[in-house]
Design a protein around this nucleic acid. Structure first.
Length: 423
RNA sequence: GUGGCUGUAGCUCAGUGGUAGAGCACUGGAUUGUGGCUCCGGUGGUCGCGGGUUCAAGUCCCGUCAGUCACCCCA
């Protein structure tokens, strides 16, 4: 029988690595809350229809990457089609509508953090279960929140030491702009269809915008001469985009306008952005986070028309871009027993110290004092504390500072130990 | 889904068709109450898995699975 192991593309995160996850997650939460966002947690499983209607059936995500299954059928009922969420936005919108949040407050700011599932071929920085942290704002048409959101992201990345990034922005305009642009783009691409890559030819009628961000050289050449969305923006769309840029300028947030930035989700309107890392660790998966405005989705899913914007960032990718971890906070003390009969007293003392808030470890498997101290040293503990016959009778403990090479052993009354170990 | 590369100890990797190895890690010890450095010992392997070729396969061939990188996709 084959060895048990994780499902392809899904990974364990073990102690030693998890500390970096905590640091990232904590930085994200802290920043999001400082900006007025509150956490929302939604189920990992949703009705398949939510993603089909929310993300768009023409997208690759919905078309071929979702983990979808049929739930067990109930009495006289057929099973329902369920899907492991491939992204977070659709679920947030569903929750927003389900609990009629839009009727309770004019503007809603939510953040989320958790695993997403897409059945793609795994690669560096791309896994089948991967983690995203994201923010969503409902009820604010922008463009000021758009800029604030982007600026918040750049601030977060900087706080985490990721400074070599590129912020790309674009605008797709509203529904009417998009329709007009789509027609113009098709008019340009159709005569050149034969020259396009196979993938782009397949996408041409279904989702022509995707041809623009193809990496195939022949596609890029053709895309370079294609009409630009920005030239098709309505006056309102253009004013919105100008407002975004002016606000980013006022915030001092660097950005690049990339008219060919399109992104693979169908729901975007107007503002679109992506932050790419330039670090070598990232490989081809250099999109650290992406987002944009999706002003039409809430109405499409049955709510009253409400403007919305959001982004998601890929935790694993950000971890790659962050580089190696700082030294983790270690133990305060490692307690050792001189003789087997000292072990209960060590446990009593360990409990006292732990109750006092100290991080304390012991190793009382029955090994020698030498072995216990060797482990104390490897544990990274600041102090070694030894209890033996003499200390037991005198109510003291021998304390050694493990950071010093030939540290003297101090005999300290147990009553003063907490204080001594905090030093 | 397509292609390239890689699978040997927990980790990093050697290994000319002829007895399975090293370093690190783990563990025991080096005049009995003290760690690191050093030294000596020990545990640990279906050589990813299945076929084939051969007197003989970790080594050669085929398949398969997994990892990884790129395409693709996207965060």
């Amino acid at each position: 029988m084959a060895k048990l192991r994780t499902v392809k593309g899904m990974n364990d995160v073990l102690p030693g690595e998890i500390e970096r996850w905590h640091r990232l997650e904590q930085a994200f939460r802290d920043r999001a809350e400082r900006y007025g966002f509150a956490e929302v947690r939604t189920p990992l499983v949703e009705h398949t229809e939510l993603f089909e209607r929310g993300i768009g059936e023409a997208t690759d995500i919905v078309d071929k990457e979702m983990y979808t299954f049929t739930d067990k059928a109930g009495e006289g009922k057929s099973g329902k089609r369920l899907t492991l969420r491939p992204e977070g936005t659709a679920s947030c919108v569903r929750a927003y509508l389900q609990h009629n949040v839009q009727g309770q407050e004019p503007v809603t700011k939510w953040y989320y953090l958790g695993p997403m599932y897409r059945r793609e071929r795994p690669a560096k920085g791309r896994y089948r279960q991967f983690y995203q942290a994201g923010c969503e704002v409902y009820g604010d048409p922008g463009p000021y929140v758009d800029a604030e959101l982007i600026d918040m992201l750049v601030g977060l990345l900087g706080e985490l030491g990721v400074r070599d990034v590129e912020v790309l922005i674009n605008s797709l305009g509203g529904a009417t702009t998009r329709t007009r642009y789509r027609e113009a783009l098709l008019a340009y691409l159709r005569p050149r269809a034969a020259e396009l890559s196979e993938d782009s030819q397949r996408r041409l009628e279904r989702n022509p915008l995707r041809v623009l961000d193809s990496k195939a050289p022949q596609d890029q050449e053709i895309a370079a001469g294609a009409p630009r969305v920005l030239d098709f923006l309505s006056d309102e769309d253009a004013a919105h985009f100008d407002g975004l840029r002016a606000t980013l300028d006022a915030l001092g947030t660097p950005y690049t306008v990339e008219p060919r930035l399109v992104r693979g989700l169908d729901y975007y309107t107007r503002t679109l952005f992506e932050v790419r890392g330039r670090g070598g660790e990232l490989g081809a998966q250099n999109a650290l986070c992406g987002g944009g405005r999706y002003d039409d989705m809430i109405a499409q899913l049955g709510g009253k028309p409400t403007p919305a914007i959001g982004f998601a960032l890929g935790i694993e990718r950000l971890l790659l871009a962050m580089g190696p971890a700082d030294a983790e906070a270690g133990l305060d003390a490692f307690l050792a027993a001189q003789r087997p009969e000292d072990r209960p007293a060590v446990l009593v003392l360990a409990r006292t110290l732990r109750e006092a808030g100290l991080r304390v470890e012991t190793d009382l498997r029955g090994n020698s004092l030498k072995s216990q101290l060797r482990r104390a040293d490897k544990s990274g503990a600041r102090f070694a504390v030894v209890l033996g016959e003499a200390e037991q009778t005198q109510g003291t403990a021998k304390v050694t500072d493990l950071r010093q090479q030939n540290a003297e052993r101090r005999e300290i009354p147990q009553a003063e130990l907490v204080e001594a170990l905090r030093a």
